[in-house]
Write a protein that binds this DNA or RNA. Structure first.
Length: 354
DNA sequence: GATGCGTGGAG
DNA sequence: TCTCCAAGCAT
């Protein structure tokens, strides 16, 4: 900013205008208690708010929908979830990604039962002590369930504020400024305000489209006077290297497929997999795990957050499965009961299963 | 404070 | 096809 012209102090965010907009345009979401519900005495269930917020971390509303309904059906209360084996939670989370969330979800449920007698704390300070709950989620739950007057800053709010202030640095380098800008105007209806700002970012002030004419805070916005799509300034993106490996789909003479559990830590930790080679920066010759008549089933490509993976898929019928002890044999018709991440569903599909 | 950690949809 | 991304957290 050293070569930027001096700016006047920004116009504070107009919280009243944001709330008025929300009262007219609030989206209906399965986990949301809207202003109209609130007027009829319905309050947000902290368990449901927490469950939805964990699922929504870095994940779209559309992707969360059926997972949320399924979890609530299987585990209606936090005590139910705490009493479930972790393995069952991982099965249901499979496909949603960022699997540490599922492990922390279960750990958090147990902590709520053990430390808080099964009642979710509602202060952001206490929430912050629980596994998987960071600054955003703690603030969101506290605001939405108890109207604690905290700033709730997610990626949407980062974008709204970055445009409002015409921030010339990436939002992650101006966290205190963004949080302070919001915190300064949090109204009594803190929960509605939090959801309103996020809705605003998801609809009006969207990543690739800014409908400024419809925006309740357009009058004070610096970005709209320039070009809102210039903001937020993007941090430099790291390149995504490719790694290569082999995946092995083994079936016994009954047709069952061999699966095993991944390592306790790291990528896709504790999830279910077919046996695989190491994933290396260079292509390496295949070393089949057991002697058999192996068939090549083509290549599977899968993109993770920080690398791209190309797997050569091999399949074989294993006549004497006794030598495979670490895992188990699963009926291919019942793979939905396995905690298989998407990449391994692709592998199994390439081999003609699912 | 930088890095590791998934996935499927939109444009 | 390819790029970008979506309601972050833990280490």
């Amino acid at each position: 900013m050293s070569n930027a012209a001096p700016q006047q102090n920004p116009v504070p965010l107009d919280a009243a205008a944001v709330l008025a907009w929300y009262d007219r345009h609030a989206r209906t979401l399965p986990w949301r208690v809207g202003p109209a519900d609130r007027a009829r005495g319905i309050t947000a269930d902290p368990y449901r708010v927490w469950l939805s917020e964990i699922m929504l971390q870095q994940t779209t509303v559309a992707a969360v929908g059926r997972y949320y309904a399924r979890f609530l059906h299987l585990w209606p209360t936090v005590a139910d979830l705490a009493a479930s084996p972790l393995e069952a939670v991982l099965v249901e989370w499979a496909g949603l990604g960022y699997y540490a969330r599922a492990r922390n979800l279960h750990a958090c449920a147990k902590a709520v039962v053990e430390r808080f007698g099964g009642r979710f704390p509602t202060s952001s300070a206490e929430l912050l002590t629980l596994p998987g709950i960071g600054p955003y989620t703690a603030a969101a739950i506290a605001a939405i369930t108890g109207d604690e007057r905290v700033a709730v800053v997610d990626g949407n709010v980062d974008r709204v504020v970055a445009r409002y202030l015409a921030l010339e640095v990436p939002a992650r380098d101006a966290k205190d400024l963004v949080r302070g800008t919001v915190q300064a105007v949090v109204p009594e209806r803190a929960g509605d305000f939090a959801q309103a700002l996020m809705d605003l970012g998801a609809t009006i002030c969207a990543p690739r489209n800014a409908s400024c004419m419809l925006c309740p805070i357009q009058p004070g916005c610096r970005g709209t006077k320039l070009d809102p799509l210039l903001y937020p300034v993007k941090p430099e993106k790291a390149d995504r290297p490719t790694r290569y490996g082999h995946a092995f789909v083994m079936r016994d003479t009954d047709g069952d497929v061999y699966l095993q559990t991944r390592a306790e830590k790291g990528l896709l930790a504790q999830m279910t997999e077919t046996p695989v080679s190491d994933w290396t920066p260079d292509k390496r010759a295949v070393v089949h795990p057991v002697a058999s008549d192996w068939r090549y089933d083509g290549q599977v490509v899968h993109v993770f957050t920080h690398f791209r993976l190309e797997l050569d898929v091999w399949s074989a019928v294993v006549a004497d499965p006794a030598e495979l002890k670490a895992g188990w044999w699963a009926d291919p018709r019942e793979l939905d009961a396995e905690a298989l991440p998407s990449v391994f569903r692709k592998v199994l599909a390439a081999a003609g299963l699912q």
